[in-house]
């Protein structure tokens, strides 16, 4: 199987400045991350906000330059090149990623013009709308006339306009209603099959990731702490942070609640190594007590 995307030892640090603007240290947002996605595969990148997920996406898209490391698509490095037609991105919030003053058609036109695609643009926009199951006359609508799910479909159509090989999905459903999330995911699966797309799926929604991704990597403080097939990682998590993430997934029924590991719930702040050590000590104590 060929490799669609390869990330090699990617590092990105941001300087920390004190009140006088002097550099007093650095934050390692992404700290030596490596992974590969086979062609046609779905790789899930899990982690809380602040774990470096979005920085990785931004580096793949060329919005941020990495300090070191390499990004390869189909075996060739894309760093320093302007040609990013092979990789496109679907942003988190479709309400923000579509320009409110431009119609759906005008938005989808942008990549067609930018990558100098010849031919009938109107027809192509119609085909793309068909592809994401939106009526063709939506081309004249403004974003505020669409629902959240429809907007995200437009964003997907726009990303597909230049026939990319790889789609970076940065929390594509987190801004949507639960009822709409499933439909968007279904659409992505269908498109993935039909067009042979490779996905990098970035999310903190673990239940969604378990259904959608074949392989997952868990990102914690800029490092991948655990990686493997989705089922394995979620059934038998090996790293404490993965357990912590799994424990924080909200559950509905009492049975489900009984099944999940008993761990003091995280409070939305990034847990420090000290917290994790305390957690491990607590869990071990519980095991021995049994």
């Amino acid at each position: 199987m060929t490799v669609a995307l390869e990330i090699r030892d990617l590092v990105k640090t941001y300087p920390v400045r004190n009140a006088f603007g002097r550099v007093s240290g650095e934050v390692r947002a992404v700290d030596g991350v490596s992974f590969t996605i086979p062609s046609g595969g779905v790789y899930g990148l899990a982690g809380e906000s602040g774990s470096g997920k979005s920085t990785i996406a931004r580096m793949i898209m060329g919005l941020t330059a990495p300090d070191s490391g390499d990004i390869l698509i189909d075996g060739t490095s894309i760093l320093g090149t302007r040609d990013r037609a092979r990789v496109q991105m679907v942003f988190q919030n479709p309400g923000a990623s579509l320009n409110p003053r431009r119609t759906v058609g005008q938005s989808i036109m942008v990549p067609l013009v930018a990558h100098r695609q010849s031919g009938d643009h109107t027809g192509r926009i119609g085909d793309l709308l068909d592809m994401v199951h939106l009526p063709r006359h939506f081309t004249d609508r403004y974003p505020h006339e669409l629902s959240g799910g429809q907007k995200q479909r437009v964003a997907i159509a726009r990303a597909l306009a230049v026939s990319p090989r790889l789609l970076v999905l940065d929390e594509p459903t987190s801004a949507l209603d639960v009822s709409v999330q499933a439909k968007v995911i279904d659409l992505l699966e269908e498109l993935g099959r039909r067009l042979g797309l490779t996905y990098l799926f970035i999310s903190h929604d673990l239940s969604l990731m378990r259904n959608f991704a074949q392989t997952v990597g868990v990102l914690y403080l800029g490092k991948i702490v655990e990686t493997g097939p989705a089922d394995q990682v979620f059934e038998r998590p090996e790293h404490d942070y993965t357990r912590l993430l799994l424990a924080s997934v909200p559950v509905i029924s009492a049975e489900e609640a009984a099944m999940r590991p008993v761990i003091p719930l995280i409070n939305g702040e990034m847990p420090t190594a000290k917290d994790l050590m305390a957690l491990r000590a607590g869990l071990n104590a519980k095991e021995t007590a049994r």
Binding site: F91, P111, H115, R158, A159, V162
Partner: peptide
């Protein structure tokens, strides 16, 4: 985001 989106689209 829509400006970043346009950048990633190659505009």
């Amino acid at each position: 985001e829509y400006v970043e989106a346009a950048e990633t689209l190659g505009a």
